[in-house]
């Protein structure tokens, strides 16, 4: 296998980032690393979602899977003392089972498009209600915390939050795993099968593609990735709440970020994570520091970022359906092609 040039340059750079941050922002090292870690963990979750999204399976239910990942792991740790090394696989299995239970009837009955989105939306809400309802264990809508083990850095408890540099490398490894899965699927025959099925299910079945099975496979992988991402996110934040890691806001955030970044290119979800995380930080800081904004909008100012998200989502879907990275790559490709295939304007009457 030939290693692409971008990886040869990119990997050392990514490994050296904590050092660079230390020199560049000695006063705010923790803050910038925090931002990067958030971007990497969410990129992984977004990449997991895009595996389904790119084949026309627009799920609004992935907030359920991140939630299951986080809550199952934390509850097992807090109440049964089971290490996340076992808790995470259990959480992944639970989320795969849920994904298959919802996916099987959907794919069997050929529920696609809007109906699939609505059904998965209901799943998100169902999981959120379960979390809130089981408030004695989950802390309800206030959320809960994984019990800290020792000084907070432990291999046994898979806790690393106090050490930001370590957290960065954990997040980086997770992100790389996501890209690897994406790349493997992109080169597999399953990708062709799913591409075909998303365009014409009957024709796909008649060339020998088991459409239901292929869709279940990708759904399971996607749900597993989101569960893993949710669990790691919980370990890094050391806090889980139905709004930060489960629920509709997470689902929508995932969809928005991937659409913004680009659904059909490997680094699209990553670009989407950079875009949304930076945007939300900028908005947060602006709102916090601006007395004028707070005066005009009152307490509604807190919802301002959600409003801007909504607006941007509409603009992206209309003007940039391929996302930021998808559109940029397409432009570059066109530029490279132009000299080879000169436009033949005017030769046809």
């Amino acid at each position: 296998m030939r290693i692409p040039k971008t990886a040869l340059i990119g990997v050392p750079i990514l490994l050296l980032v904590p050092l660079a941050v230390r020199f560049a922002f000695p006063a705010a090292e923790k803050y910038y690393l925090h931002l990067l870690i958030q971007i990497l963990i969410w990129s992984f979750i977004y990449t997991g979602w895009s595996l389904m999204g790119r084949f026309g399976l627009t799920s609004l239910g992935h907030g359920a899977f991140t939630g299951i990942g986080a809550y199952v792991m934390v509850l097992l740790w807090n109440y049964a003392g089971i290490t996340p090394w076992i808790g995470i696989p259990v959480a992944i299995v639970v989320s795969i089972i849920v994904a298959l239970l919802v996916g099987y009837p959907c794919f069997r009955l050929r529920i696609v498009g809007h109906y699939f989105a609505l059904l998965t939306l209901a799943l998100t809400e169902f999981v959120r209600l379960c979390i809130v309802g089981l408030r004695d264990y989950t802390g309800g809508s206030l959320g809960t915390q994984p019990r800290r083990f020792g000084d907070g850095v432990s291999l046994y408890a898979l806790q690393f939050e106090p050490d930001r540099v370590l957290s960065y490398y954990v997040a980086l490894a997770l992100w790389a795993l996501g890209l690897y899965v994406w790349w493997r699927i992109d080169r597999s025959m399953d990708r062709y099968a799913l591409d075909a099925a998303s365009q014409d299910e009957d024709a796909a079945a008649s060339v020998g593609i088991d459409v239901t099975r292929e869709k279940l496979k990708i759904t399971a992988i996607s749900a597993a990735m989101c569960a893993l991402g949710g669990a790691i996110y919980a370990q890094y934040q050391m806090y889980i709440g139905p709004d930060t890691i489960a629920g509709l806001s997470v689902s929508l955030n995932i969809v928005f970020a991937v659409i913004a970044g680009g659904m059909w290119v490997m680094l699209g979800p990553t670009v989407g994570a950079v875009f949304t995380q930076v945007l939300s930080e900028v908005l947060r800081v602006t709102i916090q520091n601006s007395a004028a904004l707070q005066k005009v909008f009152g307490s509604a100012v807190l919802a301002l970022d959600t409003m801007i998200y909504g607006l941007l989502l509409i603009l992206f879907i209309i003007y940039m359906p391929k996302g930021i990275l998808g559109t940029l790559l397409e432009r570059r490709e066109k530029k490279q092609e132009t000299p080879l295939v000169p436009a033949k304007a005017g030769t046809r009457s």
Partner: peptide, 26 residues
């Protein structure tokens, strides 16, 4: 048995060669 369905039913957004590739899916 291979079925050439009514109205062709190609995969329109795939290249000709990828359509053929999917034809050899089994």
């Amino acid at each position: 048995i291979a079925h050439v369905p009514e109205g062709r039913r190609l995969f329109p957004r795939l290249s000709v060669e990828n359509n053929l590739k999917i034809g050899a899916f089994i």
